[in-house]
Nucleic acid binder design. Structure first.
Length: 817
RNA sequence: GCGGACAUGGCGGAAUUGGCAGACGCACUAGAUUUAGGAUCUAGCGGGAAACCGUGGGGGUUCAAGUCCCUUUGUCCGCACCA
């Protein structure tokens, strides 16, 4: 039977009946946890990206299975989130209903892929059995002091009507809907990811992750070494000493400070502003809140600021310097205050020029260095008392040391990373398990009362207030501590919270006593291979690492990192080379192709047509080529079956040796390439083997025994990419047991050694001809063979041989003069 | 503005990490087979008549460079007043 959709169905049914892909919980010595980032069940069908991610990772998993690994390959759904809720607002269809329906559809399609997923371990984040434990983890973080509430300026998306984490703001816009993000002061829940900033950084080098991704995380964490220096606010009233700290990486420029700047939102501003400047300061602060996030992020925007009327005392010189506020100083970074050294900082220079503030040079360039102001590089100190002529690097330490003795400074490391804002003013998420009591304050829901279930009957009118806040029977409750009237937290958790621990739940998804059994999970984790989109480099992957470390420190886990090895698939573009989108009309619908060609052809085209981590444009011609390739194999097998039993030789002549060489070379390459997610070259090698088999098949007197062995190897090598088709061919060959219970072919080094090898012969680096030499010749013999070859004469005539370079098995280069 | 990645035939993409550039496939051409084919099989296929020239452009290191170094252009990505 030639390959078709029917073959897919036939084998999917048999695999399911035989429970072929059930994970064996008893053989953990060779367990291998293979995981794709789970998917959001959107209304649309499985798209090419899912196929590319899941289908080919499955091919990898199949290789590993046949190599003897006990592969754990689960699948599930990241089912909470905004789209379902927005859909509900538009259509009135409840998020739970639409989501569950979508999950059914996606699950059916995933099954049609014919992957090795073991659905017994399915996880759905919007199920109470799952989010119960999401809430439980929230409470553990709360107990540990890693979840806290604070009032802070937060990113607000007016279109999504919710707050966003810093990571979810791209260039001042919402990563989801592209609306411009505004600032709002709100009391919200945060996770203290900053507590782990250093460790998140320290563990990166040892991870088998793409360098680019590590770099993104490194930048996102943004470690910066410097010093914290204390300034005193000048005041007539000696009894009320107000001090504040600045963070600087350039303590060596301390003597060049001519003013200091506070962030407009800094708490101190109200306390120190003198009455006559009050109005100007208030006006300025008002303006700043009006400036859009986008404008504020712009580096080209002219700097603005106002004087507060207050002065600070320079910690070393004792001189008075003006205190300004300006929005180029950020409230959330460092201490929110900056010592301004206009001579040696571009921003301060620009600001000082504009407002006529003093500029004092304290760094001179070394000999020959152009040190026109602003001079921002290291140099030698000047105008800096006893530090004159000291190099910057040394002075940074010396000056801090001097300050430290007076209790006015210390070395300090700061990070760009901020705490993770997890509250969302939305309905379709895991409820925050917290109760607010007027008498007792913030009270965690007792663990035995989890899950705090989402009420079903809520109103989705888009009036800006979240459905939970409007749901009286949900909001009103009793305080677990005093029994009095209290209100539930009306927010839900960022969906990234749900996806920060799902990999821990998979292996123990039916556990109703605990989020996961630590003993079991410590055996099953970490994930050995994790595959998913690069867009999660800064968010999901950082959050998941944080969760793992936090749970480890609470004693639930004994490993440091969740994902040892990570791969990002590229993205498949439309055939016009543009990103697929409905508006461009260049989308590829997998179902159409699968109905026409079968799922294996679709999968194998994805394997063959692109460098996996690059992706690229879709091509209808490309998939036809794979269809043809499958047909070629089919015909080859059919022909062999029809000729089996006919006259056969059993000699290993030159033709057999050549074929056998290709066979073992294919085994070697396919094994290596597939292991490294280089599926395109693996398929290319398979095509070469098929071409070699066709060539051999033209001969009159064939070695049928050898042919059979090679065909079987071919089918095995093909099976990860075309599981249904390979299973069918395997059966056609007369085999009874599933091909996926066979062991992966191994190559014979001896078959890869040819009697003769072809070498390129170069004169002065230019290739002139090729020569065949026995493969066991030594360099001397090769040199002689080349020199005595008649074709060499014309290049040697009247010349002296300066040097001969022999590269074994590749080329000979004769340098003549 | 800063940082990183990439650039190879008409096209998708290979190249053992410094060693025969263009594997494999598409498209194209020719032949075979076929009543016919858009099916199948075989062969050819970077440019050039050739010497030779060719991996975005220019320079360098080396016996040897797509690969290393410098410089320049273009595309994509990350960060973007981070003190």
């Amino acid at each position: 039977m030639s390959y078709s959709r029917e073959i897919d169905k036939k084998w999917q049914k048999i695999w399911e009946e035989n429970e072929l892909y059930k994970f064996d919980r008893n053989k953990l010595d060779k367990k291998l946890y293979c995981l794709e980032m789970f998917s959001y069940p959107s209304g649309a069908n499985l798209h090419v990206g899912h196929w590319y991610n899941f289908g080919l990772t499955d091919s990898w998993a199949r290789l590993k299975r046949m190599q003897g690994y006990n592969v754990f390959h689960p699948q599930g759904f990241d089912a909470f989130g905004l789209p379902a809720e927005n859909y509900a607002i538009k259509t009135g269809i409840h998020p739970k209903d639409s989501t569950m329906k979508n999950i059914d559809t996606m699950k059916r399609q995933l099954k049609e892929m014919g992957a090795t997923f073991d659905w017994d371990y399915e996880v759905v984040t919007c199920a109470p059995e799952y989010y119960k434990w999401t809430q439980w983890i929230f409470l553990q973080l709360y107990k540990k002091g890693l979840a806290y509430r604070k009032n802070a300026p937060v990113n607000w998306c007016p279109s999504c009507k919710t707050v966003l984490a810093n990571e979810q703001v791209l260039d001042g816009t919402c990563e989801r809907c592209n609306s411009e993000v505004t600032r709002k002061n709100l009391t919200q829940w945060f996770f203290k990811i900053t507590e782990y900033a250093q460790e998140l950084l320290d563990c990166l080098p040892d991870l088998d992750w793409p360098e680019k991704t590590k770099k993104i995380q490194t930048n996102w964490i943004g470690r910066s070494e410097g010093a914290q220096i204390q300034f005193k606010v000048d005041s007539e009233d000696k009894s009320s000493d107000i001090t504040f700290n600045v963070f600087t990486t350039r303590a060596d420029t301390l003597y060049g400070v001519t003013y200091v700047v506070l962030a407009p939102e800094h708490d101190l501003v109200d306390k120190i502003t003198t009455p006559e400047y009050k109005d100007a300061v208030e006006e300025y602060r008002k303006q700043v809140t009006k400036v859009s996030e986008i404008d504020r992020l712009s580096t080209t925007r002219e700097k603005t600021g106002v004087f507060t009327g207050a002065y600070a005392i320079h910690p070393l010189t004792g001189e008075k310097v003006q205190i300004w506020i300006a929005d180029y100083v950020l409230g959330g970074y460092g201490t929110g205050c900056v010592m301004a050294v206009p001579a040696h900082d571009e921003r301060d220079y620009e600001f000082a020029k504009k407002y006529g503030l003093d500029i004092i040079r304290v760094i001179k360039g070394k000999e020959g260095v152009d040190d026109n102001l602003p001079f921002v590089e290291d140099g030698l100190l000047t105008n800096s008392a006893e530090f004159d002529t000291v190099p910057s690097q040394e002075a940074r330490l010396g000056i801090v040391e001097k300050l430290a003795k007076q209790g006015k400074g210390e070395l300090k490391v700061t990070y760009r990373l901020r705490d993770w804002l997890v509250s969302r003013q939305r309905y379709w998420g895991a409820p925050i398990p917290i109760i607010h009591c007027e008498k007792c304050g913030t009270i965690p829901v007792p663990e035995d009362q989890l899950p705090v279930e989402l009420p079903y009957n809520v109103v989705f009118t888009p009036d800006g207030e979240s459905p939970l806040a409007k749901c009286e029977e949900y909001i009103n409750t009793t305080c677990p501590t005093c029994g009095g009237h209290a209100r539930r937290d009306s927010d839900t958790l960022d969906t990234f919270v749900c996806s920060s621990w799902y990999y821990l739940r998979y292996p123990d998804n039916k556990n109703d006593k605990e989020a996961f059994n630590p003993e079991w999970i410590n055996k099953m984790l970490p994930v050995d291979k994790y595959v998913g989109g690069a867009e999660h480099a800064a968010m999901h992957l950082l959050y998941a690492r944080f969760f793992t470390k936090a749970l480890r420190d609470m004693g639930y886990l004994n490993f440091d990192e969740p994902f040892l090895s990570l791969i990002h698939q590229g993205s498949i573009l439309g055939s016009d080379g543009q990103k697929m989108s409905k508006s461009r009309g260049n989308t590829v619908t997998p179902d159409e192709y699968i109905n026409k060609y079968g799922s294996d052809v679709f999968r194998m085209y994805l394997a063959f047509g692109f460098a996996y981590i690059e992706g690229g444009p879709w091509s209808d011609d490309g998939i036809k080529a794979i269809d043809r390739f499958v047909g070629r194999i089919d015909r080859l097998v059919e022909k062999f079956i029809s000729e089996r039993g006919k006259a056969s030789s059993n000699t290993m002549g030159a033709d057999e040796k050549e074929l056998n060489f290709v066979r073992h070379n294919t085994i070697k390459s396919v094994t290596q390439d597939t292991d490294q997610f280089q599926f395109n070259t693996a398929i290319a090698r398979l095509m070469e083997l098929v071409n070699a088999l066709y060539k051999y098949d033209l001969l009159n007197n064939k070695n049928m025994g050898l042919l059979e062995d090679i065909l079987k190897d071919l089918i095995k090598l093909l099976s990860p990419f075309a599981p249904h088709f390979a299973e069918e061919m395997w059966q056609t060959m007369g085999e009874k047991e599933s091909i996926f219970n066979q062991s992966w072919p191994t190559y014979d080094e001896k078959a890869l050694v040819k009697d003769e090898v072809e070498l390129a012969v170069q004169f002065n680096g230019q290739i002139k001809f090729k020569i065949n030499v026995p493969s066991n010749s030594d360099n001397n013999e090769i040199e002689n063979l080349v020199k005595n070859d008649s074709r060499s004469a014309q290049y040697l005539e009247g010349k002296n041989i300066v040097k001969i370079i022999v590269v074994k098995g590749r080329l000979v280069n004769i340098v003549v003069k």
